[in-house]
């Protein structure tokens, strides 16, 4: 019985160790959480993927966020979406309203990037922006210029897009924060918009001032 006891304890210890290491101390249970932690720790530089915006002009992503010299909150959408991007759209509308109300235009910007360049041409993006009543000083819309750079972009931001049964897509939604140095510095779940904006403004108080 002693041998069984020892082996059992060893098995339990090994299992607990694997659990603790794999979930990084019971903090990470989903890929989304894992991604958030990695971003916070490494703050990777944005890739220079060429984007095409709603006014038909092109920008390299990192340079673009650096030129704006403010915090830019990025989201990924496709304009035909009527599930999660709708709530993302609503989140961004709320953020825009707060930015306007508190006069934060010089400190925070918004960027919606479509992962459906096939359909979401600049024209479509412009119509989408109009539908959401986007303020052009705050909120930009873009997609990739070269379709073959899409994978790089999605991979960098940790966005997984999978086709659903209805001819649309499902994708993970998050608010992605980039700073004026062209780095991705934080990832937040949607539905905590106000809190997270305050937190970010405090944490990056010097940006855009």
């Amino acid at each position: 019985m002693a041998k069984t006891l020892i082996t059992s304890v060893l098995v339990l210890m090994l299992a607990s160790l694997v659990w603790l290491v794999y979930t990084q101390g019971l903090r990470v249970f989903t890929k989304e959480q894992a991604r958030q932690l990695v971003v916070k720790q490494t703050q990777p530089a944005l890739p220079q993927v060429i984007l095409l915006d709603a006014t038909d002009s092109t920008h390299a992503l990192r340079s673009w966020t650096m030129q704006q010299n403010k915090l830019v909150i990025v989201e990924f959408v496709y304009t035909r979406c009527n599930a999660i991007c709708r709530s993302l759209g609503a989140e961004f509308q709320q953020l825009q309203a707060i930015i306007q109300k508190k006069n934060l235009q010089s400190r925070v910007g918004l960027l919606s990037i479509s992962f459906d360049p096939e359909h979401d041409t600049p024209k479509v993006l412009a119509a989408y922006a109009a539908r959401l009543k986007a303020d052009a000083n705050i909120w930009h819309f873009a997609t990739v210029k070269n379709h073959n750079q899409l994978a790089t972009l999605l991979n960098f931001f940790g966005i997984t897009v999978i086709p659903d049964e209805l001819g649309g897509y499902q994708h993970n939604a998050a608010l992605l924060l980039t700073d004026s140095q062209g780095k991705l510095v934080d990832v937040a779940d949607i539905n905590q918009t106000q809190v997270i904006l305050d937190t970010w403004l405090k944490k990056y108080a010097s940006v855009g001032k």
Partner: peptide, 23 residues
């Protein structure tokens, strides 16, 4: 090492529980 199957069942439950983690 496996009286009353204790160790074996511990192994089985540890493994199955791990593969239920979404990550």
């Amino acid at each position: 090492y496996n009286r009353y199957g204790i160790t074996g069942l511990l192994i089985a439950s540890s493994v199955t529980s791990f593969w239920m983690i979404p990550l």
